[in-house]
Design a binder for these strands. Structure first.
Length: 638
RNA sequence: GCCCAGGUAGCUCAGUCGGUAGAGCGUGUCCUUGGUAAGGACAAGGUCACCGGUUCAAUCCCGGUCCUGGGCUCCA
């Protein structure tokens, strides 16, 4: 019998007889590993544990701690779910069912949508399948055989056709009990391996994500190796639900929407308007400090501009109106306005770079189905800037922008990022040379700024390459943050120039960039990031004065006025009720400080300080508290 | 936009198999004058999203509109 040699991840080599299964190898390494093993990888190909190994190569065992292991595990769970569905609904036609981050789904063609009760029945049926510990059996079939097996399933037939077109001649199917599915695999050895799972939701989805094709019923679920891990995941979902900005927006009096006023158009309540203003003021100060000039441009511009810019031709989803027979568009972007201002005078190379900044409010026609609280709205304000510079200045300007973006986000409590550099897409304009220069400048700036990044080939805008920075929030979710784009199109369309040292006109280079991006969106992220407990410099109400009795009300008013005079955001709780109730109210609103005043304080001119997290800090003179807050309430220095 | 599920008091929700509705919290008034996360009593508060239809009668059934929510890349 011949042997093969396996190179293990630690570099060691293992000689095993040809035909040994991955599971046997795992057992030889250790029984714990064998127990946790879900699949193996041989020379880059991931395969079933029980499949004989036929060749030498690099070998690794996947467990649930690997992304690949999770995928196999959850993909198998998806099969179990599909089998359960087919047992209960003979009319269901399975389509595809992959693993996704945190779970899995399976799409079915169904005569009717699933219901909540169905979910329970399906889960119960899954329990039976798991208990029966049915093996997943891999079988290789020819294309013709596959066609026969799935003759009554047009979706599978379509997949088979595509696979054939891609040159596949041998396809694999997995059998598990009476359920057979076209599947690349691999799978766990048997259904009993799926220890903890839960169906989480159902939804409609289009076949292949194409809204012109058949609408399918999708079931979402998740699976973990033990009930505790599953519960932790469900708890995380609950945590996310508790900090949902829509819920907190209501509870903390931040913003609201009105059905009668239109979808996707937020109204800021006093606390939300204050929060927003604090963020905007800070953003403006930071821009001015870095040499940006403040602009302000109208919301309406004649439609011709959008034709020059190309937005009209691209059918950019914007709103148009008519004024005395002349067509106007509500701006979906601020750039044309900034370009008009730049072009309103001749610029010398000595003036460059010109950095124009505007908290520019734009409106875009988002499709009704995608609106989502503050995170996706139809009217929003961007911290938008356009930098006009010479090609030589491009890299240093980009470095400046990257450092600026990072500093600013850190100030708001975001410290982890993922960065994507998107390069030239197929449909694009501009010369190869310009694209190359711009893309290199972006990459050089990223390196200079010390940011690790991932290249998204072909994902750039049609007019230029871009950098997207995603930020990680307090519970590990990634959100779209700053975007920095080189524009190789607008300068040509609008003839954006500067006079060079040689006295001749040269084409300027243009950078579009946002840091907070949509302020609405950013506020939504901030609310969720802090779960409503804003740092004091952001808190809409920084201090609330709580009089213990009505006798102390007048003193409380004086204290509140003193706080307001000192520039703090303060209010007085003049409700009737016990101190405990007042404290509870303030705690639920996550107010940073409470100043409790009763007879003792009124007599001595003191305040009893209570901090949101630290609790009772004891009495102190009001002056001392004011002095303390003078520093503490300032934005952190970035 | 499309599919599905929803819209009942300020908020969270119950309810009516067609006979115009309830709770808790919140709000108001009164009692209580309190010392660090809910003191008590009473009261007010609803065109049951909007418009039409069916019906003796519609919050409930039917149709439309508006709004909200979950989805709509992840490839067998």
């Amino acid at each position: 019998m011949s042997t093969i040699s396996l190179i293990l991840p630690d570099g060691s080599t293992l000689e095993v007889p040809r035909g040994t299964t991955g599971l046997q190898v795992a057992e030889s390494i250790g029984s714990r590993l064998a127990k946790a093993a879900l699949a193996v990888r041989l020379d880059g190909r991931i395969q079933d544990l029980e499949r004989p190994l036929e060749e030498s190569g690099e070998f690794a065992v996947y467990t649930f701690s690997d992304a690949e292991g999770q995928e196999v595990y959850r993909h198998s769970a998806a099969h179990v779910m599909a089998a359960a569905v087919l047992r209960l609904f003979r009319e269901a036609r399975p389509t595809i069912g992959p693993a996704i981050p945190d779970g899995f789904y399976y799409d079915f063609e169904m005569p009717r949508p699933f219901t909540e009760e169905d979910l329970e029945r399906i889960e119960a049926e899954m329990h039976k399948l798991v208990k029966a510990d049915l093996p997943f059996v891999r079988r290789e079939v020819s294309v013709a055989e596959a066609r026969e097996i799935f003759a009554d399933n047009p979706y599978k037939l379509e997949l088979i056709e595509e696979l054939e077109a891609e040159g596949e001649t041998v396809l694999s199917v997995y059998e598990m009990g009476e359920f057979t599915d076209l599947c690349r695999g691999p799978h766990v050895p048997s259904t009993g391996r799926i220890k903890a799972y839960k169906l989480t939701s159902m939804a409609a989805a289009y076949w292949r994500g194409d809204e012109n094709r058949q609408s399918l019923q999708r079931l979402y679920g998740t699976a973990y190796p033990d009930p505790q891990a599953l519960q932790e995941h469900l708890d995380r979902l609950e945590q996310a639900r508790l900090r949902d900005h829509r819920k907190l927006g209501r509870e903390l009096g931040l913003f609201t929407f009105f059905e009668q006023a239109g979808a996707g158009l937020p109204y800021y309540l006093p606390n939300g308007a204050m929060l927003r203003q604090t963020v905007c003021d800070f953003a403006l100060q930071q821009h001015l400090r870095r040499g940006y000039q403040l602009l302000r441009t109208p919301h309406l511009i004649r439609s011709d501009i959008w034709e020059t810019s190309g937005h009209a031709q691209q059918n950019y989803p914007m709103y148009y109106t008519d004024i005395e027979g002349q067509s106007y568009g509500i701006k979906p972007m601020n750039c044309p306005g900034h370009i008009l201002i730049y072009n309103s005078q001749t610029h010398s190379y000595r003036d460059l770079p010109v950095r124009y900044f505007e908290l520019g409010t734009v409106y875009r026609h988002e499709r009704s189905g995608v609106l989502h609280g503050l995170l996706r709205v139809r009217g929003f304000t961007q911290d938008d800037a356009h930098i006009f510079c010479t090609p030589e200045q491009l890299t240093s300007e980009l470095i400046g922008v990257l450092n600026f973006a990072r500093d600013m986000l850190r100030t708001f409590g975001f410290s982890e990022f993922e960065v994507d550099l998107s390069t030239r897409p197929e449909k694009s304009m501009g010369s190869d040379e310009n694209w190359e220069h711009a893309t290199e400048a972006l990459a050089a700036a990223l390196q200079e700024a010390g940011l690790e990044y991932h290249v998204d080939e072909g994902e750039g805008a049609f007019y230029g390459p871009k950098i997207d920075i995603k930020l990680k929030d307090a519970i590990g979710r990634l959100h779209q943050g700053p975007t920095i784009q080189c524009d190789l199109n607008m300068p040509d369309r609008f003839d954006v120039n500067y006079v060079g040292e040689d006295g001749k006109e040269h084409r300027a280079v243009m950078i579009h960039r946002v840091v907070l991006a949509g302020i609405e969106r950013f506020l939504g992220l901030l609310i969720e990031h802090y779960a409503g407990a804003f740092p004091i410099w952001l808190a809409p109400v920084q201090v609330r004065v709580l009089p213990i009795t009505e006798r102390a009300l007048e003193y409380g008013r004086q204290v509140r006025d003193g706080l307001l005079q000192a520039g703090l955001r303060a209010e007085l709780d003049d409700s009737q009720g016990t101190l405990s109730a007042k404290i509870r109210d303030a705690e639920l609103l996550r107010l940073p400080y409470m100043l409790i005043v009763g007879d003792r304080e009124a007599e001595s001119g003191q305040v009893a300080v209570r901090h949101r997290e630290e609790g009772d800090l004891g009495p102190q003179p009001l002056e001392d508290f004011l002095a303390r807050l003078r520093d503490e309430a300032q934005p952190p220095r970035g």
